[in-house]
């Protein structure tokens, strides 16, 4: 399927290095002046799509972001990495995973990609749902937590990270993949690529135009700070450590 399209999710999230702070009124977390980035798993998803294209197994890589208009920035980065075009689906509020999955399903119907590659989780909501939901809505194969993808014509052999080790499954396309950390190492963006990316197209569509009206299903009552762990103390020597462990009944 060398004329295959691959659709990739690119979520705008608070950068993984930021120490997230909960707002004192419980209405969410502080985002003003906070560094935003592509969800790390989505960079891995994009990298995988780009490699498949470079190997002649796909023709076009489409980066999709659902959210505020500022997600343009993350789409530009995705284009600089090598995606061919971007789609920004704008929403009035932060959509919950089911709405995102419905939006991807609507785009799937328009674009007919052979593969949709998403991250195994977004590091803000830590939901880990959109890929499986999308596969369910489309009634196609899913392979989550992929650490190796071997695409051969109409099927893919996917190695998955599971709690007890490694699992290998074979899926027939079209399919949805979710990627794990060890699938690949995403490339760095080079300056000339940033310039080139400025010329690549980003199409903006409103979620409603895709027929997705409802964006949230769960009511968020409040966001709070978890009880902080009290740090303890340092010991001066291995003897002291063993002493303390004995006192606590661990040895």
């Amino acid at each position: 399927m060398s004329d295959m399209k691959i659709m990739v999710g690119v979520k705008r999230v608070i950068d993984y290095n930021v120490r997230v702070q909960v707002k004192s009124d419980g209405s969410g977390v502080v985002t003003d002046g906070v560094k935003m980035s592509i969800n790390p798993f989505d960079e891995i998803a994009l990298e995988e799509a780009l490699r498949l294209k470079e190997a002649g197994k796909a023709a076009e890589v489409i980066a999709v972001s659902v959210g505020p208009s500022q997600a343009q920035e993350q789409l530009r980065t995705a284009l600089a990495m090598g995606a061919d075009r971007g789609i920004l689906v704008t929403t009035a509020e932060q959509p919950q995973p089911l709405a995102v999955a419905k939006i991807f399903a609507a785009l799937y119907a328009k674009e007919q990609p052979g593969l949709v590659i998403l991250g195994k989780q977004a590091i803000d909501d830590d939901a880990g749902q959109v890929p499986q939901m999308l596969a369910g809505l489309l009634d196609v194969a899913q392979a989550t937590n992929a650490s190796k993808v071997e695409l051969e014509g109409e099927s893919a052999r996917v190695t998955r990270e599971i709690d007890t080790g490694i699992e290998v499954i074979e899926i027939r396309l079209p399919a949805v993949l979710s990627v794990d950390l060890r699938l690949n190492e995403p490339r760095y963006v080079k300056l000339p690529d940033i310039m080139k990316a400025k010329k690549k197209p980003i199409e903006t569509i409103d979620a409603q135009a895709l027929g997705v009206e409802r964006l949230t299903f769960l009511r968020v009552i409040k966001t709070s700070t978890p009880p902080a762990r009290q740090g303890g103390h340092k010991v001066g020597s291995v003897e002291e450590l063993v002493q303390e462990l004995k006192q606590r009944g661990f040895v």
């Binding site: 749902q129 499986q132 596969a135």
Partner: peptide, 23 residues
């Protein structure tokens, strides 16, 4: 919330038309 549970349940939720609650 094992890798198996996390693999299956969102698919179920989507087919039932509900938003899953994770973790």
């Amino acid at each position: 919330n094992t890798t198996v549970g996390r693999d299956i349940l969102p698919r179920v939720a989507a087919r039932l038309g509900v938003q899953q609650i994770s973790d």
